[in-house]
Design a binder for these strands. Sequence first.
DNA 1: CGGTGGTATCAGTTTCCAGTGATATGACAG
DNA 2: CTGTCATATCACTGGAAACTGATACCACCG
Lengths: 102, 102
Amino acid sequence: MMTSVDTDLMRVLADPLRLRIVTLLAKETLCSTHLIEETGAKQTNLSNHLRVLREAGVVDTEPCGRYTYYKLRPDVIAQLAVQFADLAESARNAAENKRACP
Amino acid sequence: MMTSVDTDLMRVLADPLRLRIVTLLAKETLCSTHLIEETGAKQTNLSNHLRVLREAGVVDTEPCGRYTYYKLRPDVIAQLAVQFADLAESARNAAENKRACP
DNA sequence: CGGTGGTATCAGTTTCCAGTGATATGACAG
DNA sequence: CTGTCATATCACTGGAAACTGATACCACCG
């Protein structure tokens, strides 16, 4: 039982636009142009967010000519899911485990 | 399949200190005094974070004399785990689903 | 009642980061 | 090789939010 969630990964995924990107990439692999269309964000802004996601290991990049495809790494998300599931289970087991007043 | 993660909840949980609080509360129900001991944070700061967690529905409060006990709500965490699990599964299924270059 | 300890609220400050514009790099088309 | 398009990098800025200090509130104890 780990019951510890990766804080850095959380901070990366807590941004609305980044979470939107991740959600889109969970459906299909896309390049920056597609993401600009889908999100309506500025190219620079998007590129910055993709950089954060890349450096956090959330997405993989695959150059294709002058395009760059972004692919979500399912294992990273799955691991986070497990961490939260563990946390929830721990909380259920410790429901009535109350420390005494000092 | 929802494949959409609650952004507001993510923002609430993305703070290091709040995540620390949640992790502690997953093991046992505690009051503010205990949390001050465990985290080393100032009382005011902690109270502010607990307020955020309470308003987000992540924790329940239970007054006990002049103490206030905080209890983690497992279902909220579990739901988040499911959302990420769905997202990961969606990403696995869409692994080779690549949209054509424009 | 008066004092003490636990908790909450408020206002001010500081820190951090998402968004932006300008610009650089690199690949293809002509 | 020249222009154009896709993407990345850099420096800057505005605003949100984490932290802090002062203070108020409430419950217990003497």
